[in-house]
Amino acid sequence: MNFIIDYYNYWVVVFLMMAGFYTVIAANNLVKKIVGLNIFQTSVFILYISMGKVAGGSAPIVADGITVYSNPLPHVLILTAIVVGVATTAVGLALVVRIKHAYGTVEENEFKHKDDLI
């Protein structure tokens, strides 16, 4: 049981990462590919936050009577990454909107010319 608890978080991270990866390469619709990219991204967030956790620790805000704090560094890295992540997702979605405008479709297999196929 201990062995499972020690590595469970990492396994779920790998599963989510692969679920996102699969959506990116197998989905036909560009919006769905972006959702897949986001799932991939969130799995990395969970990996970092899992590494920052200290068993029996508390949130890294100083309070009386608390001696063990979780590691604040991964929190900082991921906090900013989330906001940057939504900003870059917005750029991706804007590109999808322009592709729809230019080609009339966002389905991978519907682009008319061979050169346009992704």
Partner: peptide
């Protein structure tokens, strides 16, 4: 994230995601 003590991150994820 709340459960893993990352309260600031949870806050951001709830508002952004």
């Amino acid at each position: 994230f709340v459960n893993l003590d990352a309260v600031d991150v949870a806050f951001t994820e709830a508002a952004v995601g």
